[in-house]
Amino acid sequence: MSWQTIDRTTVAEEQLGPGLSDAVRDKVRGFFPRYATKQAALLPALHITQNALGYVSLQAMRDIAELLELTPAQVLGVVSFYTHFWTHPKGRKTIVLCRSLSCELMGGKAVKDAIQRQLGIGEHETTPDGRYSYMTEECLAQCDDAPCMLINEKMHKRVRAEDVERLLADENNDKLDIPRSDLFDAPPEG
């Protein structure tokens, strides 16, 4: 229910978290020539921020607001609208499991149970060792290979509940075998 916004009293109690580095700011500025307004660079900025920090912290929202000449509330409004952005820290790898009709008919619920049992966490939670976070998402448009799930950027097709243990133990389960573009990646450190 994307129309529900963050409970403001909860926000005030939380830590502000890390802010944006100069390199991230420069990368975001690189998107300005693409659009007629600075505000339009907000989604790219959030993608880059989440890539750099692992999530979109409150301090990052303030920094982005300053950079794009918005109010922090406007940035928060956008962050809370889209399911891709996390407002609390997540693990190194994010598992996104499809829960739409095709995947559910093909055994998606069993895969969901297997993942939750294997990791011992619920939705939007992170394992204690910080390795995995887990969430479900509506249709990932891979219905011909249902049930499917993403581990970071890698799409895993026709996942069966009995494969889950082996899949999660594999160190390279998020490696892509195609050339990547670093357009929305965090800038390299240093």
């Binding site: 889209y82 891709h84 996104v96 993403l150 950027e153 799409m155 892509l176 573009s181």
Partner: peptide
Amino acid sequence: RGEFTELFH
């Protein structure tokens, strides 16, 4: 859409 990760590349 954001879920098209491999496709974006």
